[in-house]
């Protein structure tokens, strides 16, 4: 990560625990990743690996309790926002860092019109008048390509299709021109064709305004298309971090390798798709040493004892595997 410009947003060794009645569960176990202006960072991993939790920690929308940030930093332009007072963080998430969610229907308030929900950003944070805010809401709806925006501004969320609702979420998120947009599986709940439209829209909007985009997904196809960098997460840790081309051509972690191998390819007929063996670990009782060892083809005795740190394996490419070099050579 050395040649990159100073990152806009960086997570540094973030540890988040969920407090249970009997034991605590570490949802994030020292997570680090960063994103620069104009860059798209994809975070991939199986469900439950901590992708969303890391984003919620940034936005300050973790359920506290039971969640608790135990250690680490979240740095915006170099300063740790976890140390900021709540009021300042609030302004930050309104104006600099925004987020959209997987389920746009439940994420929009059912009893207010979409216009009101977009206009609220301008009214609360910019102190604009009712009518000015409404005008800007229409502008935002047009910007996210909602047809007939002027007429639809007074409609309620349930009157829109899934794709249109996600556009509204995007309109709310981008209304104050933030620098970072976190998209938490924004297309998972949508039809395939609509998925492509939303991804295209996000990409366009990003290009227009030098937005840093953090895209949380488990769709490697999308990653290959839009991401600049990829952070692969497993069991609450980033296990590999690399530019997208490097990751796809020479993965340096057995887990990434497994993910790559499970992507179906055109022209590859007749052979069974290899799937990752086993199931992801339960976070309440994680395996000792490297969390991936029970499913790993490269496992050695050391993997049971020592947690491999995320370390650079080549320029701008890190992996958390004791045998990363061997993994890269094998590919």
């Amino acid at each position: 990560m050395s040649l990159q410009p100073a990152p806009l947003l960086a997570l540094d060794d973030l540890v988040v625990e969920f407090r249970g009645r009997r034991h605590n569960v570490a949802a994030l176990n020292g997570v680090s990743y960063s994103v620069a202006a104009g860059e798209t960072l994809a975070i991939v991993g199986e469900s439950g690996c901590g992708k969303s939790v890391s984003a919620q920690a940034v936005m300050g929308i973790l359920d506290i309790p039971p969640a608790r940030i135990v250690a680490g930093q979240i740095r915006y332009r170099g300063t740790d926002i976890l140390a900021w007072p709540e009021r300042r963080r609030r302004t930050l998430r309104a104006t600099k860092i925004a987020m959209i969610f997987q389920d746009a229907l439940s994420s929009l308030n059912p009893v207010y019109t979409v216009g009101e929900q977009i206009a609220e950003m301008f009214r609360v944070h910019r102190g604009e008048s009712h009518s000015a805010a409404r005008r800007k809401a229409i502008e935002m709806m047009e910007r996210v390509r909602i047809p007939d925006a002027r007429r639809r501004v007074g409609d309620y969320p349930h009157q829109f299709s899934g794709g249109m609702r996600q556009r509204i979420m995007i309109a709310i998120a981008l209304s104050l021109e933030p620098e970072v947009l976190i998209a938490d599986e924004p297309t998972t709940a949508l039809d395939v064709t609509v998925q492509a439209q939303i991804m295209a829209l996000l990409h366009e909007l990003k290009e227009e305004s030098q937005l840093a985009l953090i895209l949380i997904t488990h769709d490697l196809g999308v990653v290959a298309e839009v991401a600049d960098r990829v952070a692969v997460m497993y069991a609450g840790q980033v296990v590999e971090d690399a530019p997208v081309r490097t990751l796809f051509s020479s993965p340096a972690h057995p887990y990434t390798q497994g993910l790559m191998a499970s992507i179906p390819r055109l022209g590859q007929r007749g052979s069974r798709l290899p799937a990752l063996r086993g199931a992801p670990p339960t976070l309440s009782a994680p395996p000792t040493g490297c969390p991936f060892h029970p499913r790993c083809a490269y496992g050695r005795p050391v993997c049971l004892d020592r947690l491999p740190p995320l370390r650079p394996v080549e320029e701008d490419h890190s992996s958390a595997c004791h045998f990363a070099e061997e993994v890269m050579a094998r590919d």
Binding site: M59, G60, I61, R87, R90, T91, L92, R93, A94, T95, A98, M99, F101, S107, L108, N109, E120, M121, V124, H125, M169, I172
Partner: peptide, 9 residues
Amino acid sequence: RTAIAKGLG
């Protein structure tokens, strides 16, 4: 959650 993410007080 959205409302909090919108930076509302």
